[in-house]
């Protein structure tokens, strides 16, 4: 009985097909990988199959694809002011990937891929690598101007530059932990409150109290939908803000 309520159980990876080992690490096709490819499939369905007719008056799927596109293009343009929208494919892919994976996590009994730190860190690392590599390629050593705030007196730079460097290094960590922690905490809270309903129902006279956690679970579910969408948006917006540094390193 107690075992079945373990709120951590939902985050376990289940290998579906094992493909062998690299060193001591097993490479298996897990449900996590399946969800990721399913997300790619859903996004392709919306943005490629849905827009196949290229109609001037869009249908439902095409409208959805256009709404997502314009939303991300606007966000990116506001953050970077980049007319060519060089990073649009990256930010759009990140937003859609995180959004769809978060939404998959909201399906009962489904697995939330973004509740694994390594996944969110992988995405955040991709963002920061893009910023650093593009910044250095485009601006060379001038990219280091990112760490020197303009208009600051020389002595203060001794303090400011290390702070800027630390804040830059903490970006991938905060970006990945924010998403991971939000999804993880939300799912644990949902699981615990939902379990209270079942436990109270089995507790004799106390069962009259069982609607209380039920309402809480419903409210939390709504909140988690909000969090799922919001975290995808936050991830995309912060990515755009960081990419703006790669385009214009001078403060």
């Amino acid at each position: 009985m107690a075992a079945s309520i373990d709120p951590i159980h939902q985050f376990e990876l289940k290998p579906l097909v094992s493909l062998g080992h690299i060193g001591h690490q097993e490479i298996a096709f897990t449900q996590s990988a399946l969800y990721m490819f399913a997300a790619v499939g859903v996004i392709a369905l919306i943005t490629i199959v849905g827009t196949a007719s290229r109609s001037v008056v869009p249908g439902r799927m095409q409208s959805l694809a256009e709404v997502f596109y314009e939303f991300i293009a606007d966000t990116l343009h506001q953050a970077t002011g980049d007319k060519e929208q060089r990073f649009l494919p990256l930010v759009f892919s990140l937003f859609m990937f995180v959004l769809i994976l978060n939404m998959f996590g909201m399906i009962p009994y489904a697995f939330a891929v973004t509740s694994h730190l390594i996944i969110t860190f992988g995405l955040a690392f991709l963002v920061i690598s893009t910023v650093v590599i593009y910044g250095v390629m485009k601006h060379g050593t001038h990219f280091l101007g990112l760490f020197i705030p303009s208009g600051v007196p020389k002595p203060l730079l001794l303090i400011m530059v290390p702070i800027e460097i630390v804040s830059f290094i903490s970006r991938p960590i905060s970006l990945s932990v924010r998403l991971f922690a939000n999804i993880l905490a939300g799912h644990i809270a949902l699981k615990i409150f939902a379990f209270f309903v079942a436990q109270l129902l089995l507790a004799g006279a106390w069962s009259v109290l069982s609607p209380l956690p039920l309402f809480l679970t419903i409210a939390l579910t709504a909140l988690e939908f909000l969090v799922a969408a919001l975290q995808a948006y936050v991830f995309a917006t912060l990515t755009a803000v960081y990419l703006a540094d790669a385009l214009h390193p001078g403060h």
Binding site: E26, A28, A33, F37, V40, S93, I118, I119
Partner: peptide, 10 residues
């Protein structure tokens, strides 16, 4: 393994 699948999917 997760990073490999992430890289492939993404």
């Amino acid at each position: 393994a997760q990073l490999v699948w992430l890289a492939l999917a993404f």
